[in-house]
Design a protein around this nucleic acid. Sequence first.
DNA 1: TCAAGTACTGACTATATTGTCAGGTACTCA
DNA 2: TGAGTACCTGACAATATAGTCAGTACTTGA
Lengths: 112, 112
Amino acid sequence: MARNRPYTCGLDAAIDVVGGKWKATVLWMLEDQGPLRFGELRRQIPAVTEKMLIQQLRELEADGLVHREAYHQVPPKVEYSLTDYGRTLEVALRPLGEWGHANMARIEATHA
Amino acid sequence: MARNRPYTCGLDAAIDVVGGKWKATVLWMLEDQGPLRFGELRRQIPAVTEKMLIQQLRELEADGLVHREAYHQVPPKVEYSLTDYGRTLEVALRPLGEWGHANMARIEATHA
DNA sequence: TCAAGTACTGACTATATTGTCAGGTACTCA
DNA sequence: TGAGTACCTGACAATATAGTCAGTACTTGA
């Protein structure tokens, strides 16, 4: 989002990391269901395109939140999982997720 | 960000609400310093333009998170404050803000 | 030989979000 | 009359983010 660095507050920094269109969803899936293969993630999130999913995964990996494990097999197998650091983020994100869940109807109604 | 509705998870919904470039900062200011006038907010966040600040405030207001109180005076006086609903969001956001604060250096270093 | 599965890549396009800049009102004070 | 203050608007341009689509490598199974 081309945020204002240096960040004005921790929130700003955190949202910069987690603000991508699919990142929250990916993090949530990996937390909820443990390590997942690329294709599994893709099927869990039907609306995402392959390109976007890879892009988001690469960014999460570069940020150290997600670990990518490639098995040298044919056909290829790649597994994504949360790192310890990623898990600390997930914990910090949980109240926000609960807030969103609790107020989902209101958000959908008011947020054009 | 033109997010995927209906939302896939609460996190998705929450980030839709709080994901604007300056929204987190505004929420943080209003929580931290109580009701603020437009000009005060603007001075607290030097990098924001008037147009952007108004736009973000309008959206926060439409979402019911921020209350706008106009005093019919000249020169005009308008005060913005968090609503009760806005305060519930602020509470949910706090752990994330702390996470961002604690990991700021790492985020700035890794997040290109 | 040919399709299918798996995890990608890259060129190009489309849309969304931000930013710039020039007003605009309405009233007060000198 | 003219300047100043505070809050805001709208046209337009720039940038950032997301999406489309075609194509890759390698191997198994029909």
